[in-house]
Simulated scan of single mutants.
Amino acid sequence: METICPIDSQFKDQISAFLKPPSLLEVQDYFDQLIASKQIRGLKVKPNGEYGKGIYAEEGFEEGGLVLKDQMLVGAQHSSNKIDCLVCSFCFRFIGSIELQIGRNLYLHDLGVSMNNECTWQTSSQILKDCYQSHSSGGEDYSDVEDPQNFGECASSSSKNKISLPKEVVESLMNGELVLPYSKEFPLPPVVSCPGGCREAYYCSQSCAEADWDLHHSLLCGGETSKTLCEALSKFTQHANETNDIFLLAAKVISFTILKYRKLKVAHQKSATSDASNCDLPLLLEAWKPISMGYKRRWWDCIALPDDVDACAETAFRMQIRELAFTSLQLLKAAMFDKECELLFSLEIYGHIIGMFELNNLDLVVASPVEDYFLYIDDLPHSEKVRKHHLDIFILFSA
């Protein structure tokens, strides 16, 4: 039996207005204003009813010159990648140090932490807290973190058969006591903690931390919320990590829209009299405008049928996807529901947000300074390499 979302029925007309595709003229006007506000020269966005939107050059560019630099609307590091790479939660730049990157990778993999392990996320999120103290610009105290030895039971049997570095060596890499040769040639920005103290998000600079807080993270941070909301956020995140981390992007979109709506309403109230407790639909539509420009369909309607699903089971498969989205939405609603923006928590809108990412996702690969570091070591003359007493670390890690 199909699950019914009561918000879909309650706000049917408003939801239709939200999901109505903008006209070509509205799209053109939006991008013209966006380009003008960012002072981008030589480029023009032109919508086409048949092929979508295209970026056109209106003047010549020098070879190797910068054509466009812009901020992504929302982005997230793949959950499975968080064990291997410590990056800024806003711009996704590698942070900490070469030693920290290598040490935490060795440490987590030595424990057998895998995204398929049932105790993975609780394990990794706790262990990582120990890694950053000496690499943080704020000197935070992590003395309340549980002893990583307590998580040894999560190690997989396969990890126990691998050759491991001594625990003391790995810990000295993470806490900065051990400095690898030539690592200073690959400096990384220090670790900046979340302004809300959630210890799940880390940044390369205070500006990135503040920007993420202002745009998305303040509603998704478990540091300053009540214990109940913190647990609700944890359940939502765990469900996303175990099923599909596309839900994390959808949550950022809803958070972005709510926060932008609140700012617009504050500015509007300074110049006009309005009811502070009721939803101002035109302002909410204005806050939603950047999202409205993306092509959308319901996730369960547009997702490709997997090869292992028979065509006769397609209807059941799409119903399962819909139920999965509804479960995620209920968990998100428990974590950050806003009564004034209630219609954003409709399954119809949530499904279209996820479908937008399904149809428009772009995976970005950020060059790893650790890989560059090992390439640098490999290119050293043999006489230089054999004189370095930490060569065994390079061999073990690269193997």
Rank of each mutant, 00 (worst) to 15 (best):
Q126H: 09
H352V: 11
A313R: 12
D141H: 12
A325I: 03
F374E: 07
L215D: 06
C204M: 01
C204G: 13
I83H: 00
A155K: 03
L264E: 07
C221V: 04
D32F: 14
L111E: 10
Q330N: 12
G196F: 02
C119V: 04
L305G: 13
E185N: 01
E200S: 07
K162W: 05
P381A: 10
V191P: 00
N244P: 09
C194I: 02
Q10M: 13
T228N: 10
T3E: 15
E177D: 01
I55M: 13
E242R: 15
F92D: 03
H78R: 03
Y51I: 12
N361D: 00
Q320G: 15
H135G: 06
S368V: 08
S136V: 04
I102E: 00
V191W: 10
K184D: 06
F337K: 09
I35V: 13
D212G: 08
S183K: 05
V74Q: 11
C208G: 05
I354R: 14
E231R: 12
S271Q: 15
A313E: 14
G196H: 11
H216R: 10
L380I: 11
G64M: 01
S277M: 13
S89N: 01
D13F: 15
L375S: 03
K160P: 05
R322A: 14
A36I: 10
Q133V: 15
P369Y: 12
P166R: 13
L364Q: 00
A76P: 11
K38E: 14
H352R: 10
M1F: 15
F236H: 12
L108R: 02
G138V: 05
Y142P: 11
H216I: 01
K227H: 03
D32Y: 15
P22R: 05
K184G: 09
I349G: 10
S271M: 15
A36C: 08
A76T: 00
L219N: 04
A36H: 14
V87K: 08
Q206Y: 11
C208M: 05
G42H: 07
R262L: 13
I7S: 06
L324Y: 07
A240I: 07
S271T: 15
A325F: 08
C279N: 08
A276I: 14
A276P: 13
V45Y: 05
V386N: 01
R93T: 10
C194K: 07
G103D: 00
S158N: 08
I303D: 07
I258M: 02
T228H: 13
G112Y: 12
L359P: 08
R387K: 09
F31Q: 01
Q33C: 08
D8K: 09
L344P: 12
Y56A: 02
K184C: 11
K20G: 02
E171A: 03
L284R: 06
Q330P: 13
K227F: 04
